[in-house]
Nucleic acid binder design. Sequence first.
DNA 1: TGTACATCAGTGAACGCGCGTTCACTGATGTAC
DNA 2: TGTACATCAGTGAACGCGCGTTCACTGATGTAC
Lengths: 231, 231
Amino acid sequence: MGHTARVNDRTPDPAASRQERKQRTRRALLDAALELLEEQGFSSISLRQVTRTAGVVPTAFYRHFADMEELGLALIDESFRTLRAMLREARTGGSMDGRAIHNSVEILVGYVHEHRNHFRFIVRERFGGVASLRQAIGGEIRMFGSDLASDLARVPALDRWRGEDLRLLAGLIVSLMVQTTEEILEAPPSDLAGYEETMSRARRQLRMITLGLGEWRVAGRADATTAGSRG
Amino acid sequence: MGHTARVNDRTPDPAASRQERKQRTRRALLDAALELLEEQGFSSISLRQVTRTAGVVPTAFYRHFADMEELGLALIDESFRTLRAMLREARTGGSMDGRAIHNSVEILVGYVHEHRNHFRFIVRERFGGVASLRQAIGGEIRMFGSDLASDLARVPALDRWRGEDLRLLAGLIVSLMVQTTEEILEAPPSDLAGYEETMSRARRQLRMITLGLGEWRVAGRADATTAGSRG
DNA sequence: TGTACATCAGTGAACGCGCGTTCACTGATGTAC
DNA sequence: TGTACATCAGTGAACGCGCGTTCACTGATGTAC
């Protein structure tokens, strides 16, 4: 809440190269935007507010971004880049089963919790007023759903499912994860009990979904396959 | 796209009373805002844009709303009032079973489809930059979840469920409905095939959720291991 | 190592613009008698 | 029914303000020799 780390604060740090300092200012602009986005929507924060918060003159902005939209896209990229890497890593190791799906959900929710400001921005702008940001965020979430669907295809219990049904199932899970992300962001970051509560709710809701999967008729006929979610 | 029904267009209609004309201007302001909200977020549309689109001078705005926020709250109220009535009616008739839940979902999705502009606004501002609107929308959705949970309590198959679990299940279904609403709004209103496709997906996803409910252990132990499917 | 020049991140003044809000007003509609 | 007055939805001018963007600039950092 308003520590507002400005980029200069008049300690020029002679050890830093020109390039390093430029990066630092860029960082300050991104952080300033994230700070302002705690309170406002992206389309209502101004370039001048951002530079003011970053401790820099308005015109300095143009050394880093062509306009606010470009800054917004940079924030989206930042938000998802590390998460994608973490999930890719989690998914390469070992076999794919119900446990692995649960793991991915835990990784995502933990990640969101640790990057609250980024994801508050993401949730706000997912259907916000700026079309290019909406598209970029939509693309990331869709990609996330596709990855999940192909993971699900590797779960033994689901091996006879049609691709279309796997995508529906993935959509259901993504929908739960979006909902959970929103819940995480509603509580203050210090509220660890609330965080655990949300996690626990998400786990049980995920289990509610997976429990019934054994009942789903694969080919459209009533041949009930076995094996629900097995821990 | 941009038919922009202005309030005056210089046909004063001598038959209308002063009160009727005032209502008409109010309506024109709300419609103007909805039209602008197709393209922009609420916090970035201006009072002057709204009055310009409505065909009225900026200062006339104050005869109807204290500020833009008050207009926004009026739009939220409009969006949900009729829907609430329809769902209440749907739920008073007859017994409550899986069929009734499906019916409610159909009503909601159809309603959203026929009030696209209102619900685009709702979806945008649900996590948008204006706190009071966020709260109002959150309250409506939460109320919706509570109603659904108490409906679920009357479903025979769920009669032994704990309230907490019913709320989780209701949350899951609300989450699916929000997701479906977002899908409906992504396609143009003329795309009836897309609408039916979305409806069909929603139905099957709802079935995926409800299929497993027989497996849920009512008294709920805390570990993750679960039995396989029943016949 | 020292000098002369190039680069370029950040500065500060200035611009025209749309904004929300104020104010005194107009003139049609409504009401009292 | 006709007259005199009150109401009040909508008008139009004016205000001060923050905005995005332009421009010429400064002075520390980087580079060539």
